[in-house]
């Protein structure tokens, strides 16, 4: 509406610059992998403990809250044996046991949130080994324990959606941080892809903090949603990673260079075996990617029957002529063929 009067003088500089970056509140959702087996491995190999990581995450949450008084946080855990994926904060039922972790001088908001988080996680951690024991008792090698990281991500996205809808001013931006320590074999491919698409639609960036083995799926997730994928080489300095590389607010993303790992494996994976494949089969009805031909000749996703003739054709092994043959046999074979060009 200021086009009514064109000014010969330019505007004072503060305003256009501030328009560049809106000071809107933001919501940070964190998903942490707490599987005891994985942590055991990690601690043995790299001497990183869950306690360190949880502490760093808590400090990071505090920093996020200190950015803006109306910032929100949410914390989820994944891959737990007892509950799969679970919400840690904000809990719907009020917990009475807010213990005072720290000296009373702490900012009230931090204190409350931190206390609640530590309580809940500790409670969960206590349950894990027992459940694990139960699982060990069952049959070996026949069961496949699902990883629930994708589930936790979906829950986080739903939570973000809920908060964004209920915010009257429509000014809340969000992002998701995933702290993962397991590899792709625990991730269900299709579910992870679906969460990636959902975050794309909602314009939520997915940042990934990776310890332990690296993961193709999460790399693709970060790349597709304008997020940061960082592989932690020095776990001792985790807090620096968390407060620098993984701390970029959604409103700063347009102007800041993202320190993400740019060498990404963009290959797709088979829906059944979760292997990354270069060449494979695709169902023409539902476009599901397969690396093997199913025994029952039906697509595992849409259950459409494949053409049997085609399958026999595909299954046929190629048979070609051998190379090293004696000359006179060569001559016999080529009796009827076109003359060979040297």
């Amino acid at each position: 509406m200021d086009a009514i009067a064109d000014r010969a003088f330019t505007e004072s500089q503060t305003n256009p610059a501030h328009k560049l970056v809106d000071e809107t509140p933001s919501l940070l959702a964190v998903v942490v992998d707490i599987n005891p087996l994985e942590w055991r491995k990690l601690e043995k190999e790299q001497s990183v403990s869950l306690k360190q990581v949880v502490s760093s995450i808590i400090v990071m949450l505090n920093s996020h809250l200190s950015l803006n008084s109306s910032n929100h946080v949410a914390l989820y855990i994944a891959n737990s044996y007892s509950h799969g994926a679970q919400l840690i904060y904000p809990r719907t039922e009020s917990s009475k046991s807010t213990r005072f972790l720290h000296t009373p001088g702490m900012y009230r908001q931090f204190r409350f949130i931190d206390g609640s988080i530590v309580d809940t996680i500790e409670h969960l951690l206590n349950e894990q080994p027992d459940t694990l024991l139960q699982l060990i008792g069952r049959e070996q090698g026949k069961q496949h324990i699902k990883g629930t990281l994708a589930g936790a991500m979906s829950m986080a996205l739903c939570h973000i959606n809920k908060i964004q809808q209920s915010d009257e001013l429509n000014a809340l931006k969000s992002r998701l941080l995933v702290v993962s320590i397991s590899d792709d074999s625990t991730l269900p491919y299709v579910s992870v892809m679906n969460t990636i698409f959902a975050s794309q639609k909602m314009k939520i960036s997915v940042d990934v903090c990776k310890l332990g083995p690296s993961s193709t799926f999460l790399q693709q997730a970060a790349d597709a949603t304008n997020g940061v994928y960082i592989y932690i080489t020095q776990p001792e300095g985790l807090i620096q990673y968390l407060t620098t590389a993984l701390f970029i607010d959604p409103m700063l993303r347009p102007i800041i260079v993202l320190p993400t790992d740019e060498s990404i494996d963009f290959r797709a994976s088979c829906f059944i075996t979760n292997k990354v494949i270069d060449v494979g089969y695709v169902c023409s009805v539902c476009l599901c990617i397969l690396s093997v031909i199913p025994e029952d000749e039906k697509c595992p996703t849409c259950h459409s029957k494949f053409d049997h003739n085609l399958i026999t054709k595909l299954k046929r092994k190629p048979k070609v002529l051998p190379l090293k043959k004696k000359d006179k046999e060569l001559g016999d074979k080529n009796g009827t063929a076109t003359p060979e060009s040297a």
């Binding site: 501030h18 950015l67 807090i239």
Partner: peptide, 25 residues
């Protein structure tokens, strides 16, 4: 610390980001 927090909140976002990168150094 409370004053620090309050002053921090008054800064522009990029300034906050810079501070966070240098905070633990």
């Amino acid at each position: 610390p409370e004053t620090c927090l309050a002053v921090f909140r008054l800064l522009p976002s990029l300034a906050k980001f810079y501070i966070m990168t240098m905070l633990f150094q």
